[in-house]
Design a protein around this nucleic acid. Sequence first.
DNA 1: AAGTTGCTCAACCGCATAGGG
DNA 2: CCCCTATGCGGTTGAGCAACT
Length: 290
Amino acid sequence: MGRPPCCSESSDLKKGPWTPEEDEVLTTYIQKHGHESWRALPKRAGLNRCGKSCRLRWINYLRPDIKRGNFSEDEEILIINLHSTLGNKWSRIASQLPGRTDNEIKNFWNTHVRKKLLKAGIDPKTHQPVPNITFLLDTISKLNLPLKVPAIMSPWINNINDQLLNNLLQFVNMTPLPKPTFLDSQCYMEEMVNQYAINRSEDWMEYVNNVSLEPQSECDSIGASLMGSYGNGTEIPELFTDLKSMSHNLFMENQLPGMSPEEPMNLKNSLESNAFETGFDDYYESLLKI
DNA sequence: AAGTTGCTCAACCGCATAGGG
DNA sequence: CCCCTATGCGGTTGAGCAACT
């Protein structure tokens, strides 16, 4: 199906890594004669390669104006911004970064940026926050609250409290702490979530199956206060509505540098339609996928 | 030291597109 | 228009290397 590849008709053409000698031949030829026809070039230059392979080698490696070395922070931010508007249009992105090739940017995206964004709770495709619990965990970990961090995920089992909520709100309103960079503290986040997924999933499912808040026998005074605030039998979605608005505010405060002006509205829309409102099974699934 | 796992990135593959006849 | 060819583009692969066990 489809057109055969340009070089498949001659299977004795060389493939695989280029040798320094081949590089030399190609460079010398192009410097002398240019590359008006990639198809004809290998034969004229005396290379046992297909034109496509020659073109790729020149564009991605041998071109004299190619920029080598690690991407700078500015380049990374530019790539993120361009990707948020252009998507996987690597060649268009590359055209904005002198000396960088589409292949190089694509590799950089797939091996670095994509992972960074994911760990920061941002969907690398949509550039919008992934509605998962990592956000809340990250936030709480930075607040250094005298609570075990996983408490936010199992409040319904033992010790959520409205002091926690108050602290979060205080943080959002007063922002007395330096703005967290969501690109940091990734390992910690991952570990916490993994541990939770491993250790607490049964609790979680047990809770999901029984979505009313019942005071636990070991419930402390803070827990009792929560019961007072929300009342027995409070449906979990009500609690999540509060947490949703908090995570939204926190994200607005801590968005990645250089986002486009319309990005905050996209984030808002995303949060308003996220899994907090679509049920806990979905939410739990997203947690396990992290 | 040896084996395993994970990561990076150069290179490939196949489809899309442009342009000429 | 339609067909054909060359080039461009984006997704994917796998060799080589580093880190880990």
